[in-house]
């Protein structure tokens, strides 16, 4: 203050009287204020910000009234786990139970059923099924939607030119 006497100060004040803020200063004042406040806050580490937020949230709520929520969520999760385990284990059980019997029928004796001396058209078909379905493995669940069959590659396959 020693550098300026009263006259100097009065001159500076006269000059300041005519100084104007830049255009839009007052309009952006609030926005600028919040920005600077946010910048200031973000200088803290993230974990501290989260902790403060959580703390503030808990203070606003009544913690005792919320005590039953975690218990309910845990119960729902346990139920879902039990139901899903039951669903996915069911086919495996069926596979084990049904795969043990042989899937093929015994070869039929051709002696009594075929006569090569008679015309082919009059021969009698052996009409027993080649294999019985209840002897084969069945692992699908009842009520599954049907599969409409048409493969993308023929099943016929010959690995080499051998005959």
């Amino acid at each position: 203050m020693d550098e300026f006497d009263d006259n100097e100060i009065a001159r500076l004040l006269r000059l300041k009287r005519y100084e104007q803020p830049p255009p839009g200063y007052f309009e952006n004042f609030l926005h600028e204020f919040h920005r600077r406040q946010r910048d200031e806050m973000l200088r803290q580490p993230l974990w501290r910000i989260c902790l403060e937020r959580a703390h503030g949230f808990m203070l606003r709520l009544d913690v005792r009234s919320l005590a039953s929520y975690p218990a309910a969520v845990a119960a729902v999760l346990v139920c879902a786990a039990v139901v899903s385990l039951k669903i996915y284990q069911q086919p495996e059980t069926a596979r084990v139970a049904l795969q043990s019997p042989p899937a093929l029928s015994a070869p039929a004796s051709a002696e009594g059923e075929w006569s090569l001396t008679s015309p082919v058209a009059t021969q009698i078909f052996r009409t027993q099924p080649v294999r019985r379905f209840n002897e084969s493995a069945q692992t699908h669940r009842a009520g599954a939607p049907p599969r409409y069959v048409l493969d993308s590659v023929p099943v016929s396959y010959e690995p080499t030119f051998r005959f």
Partner: peptide
């Protein structure tokens, strides 16, 4: 019904006694 699910396909009769052809699949 195969080991996975019910299946649907097509076939056709080749004699009057009910014999029919279909695909292996």
């Amino acid at each position: 019904v195969d080991e996975h699910s019910p299946i649907c396909g097509t076939g056709f009769f080749i004699d009057p006694t009910g014999t029919l052809y279909t695909a292996y699949t």
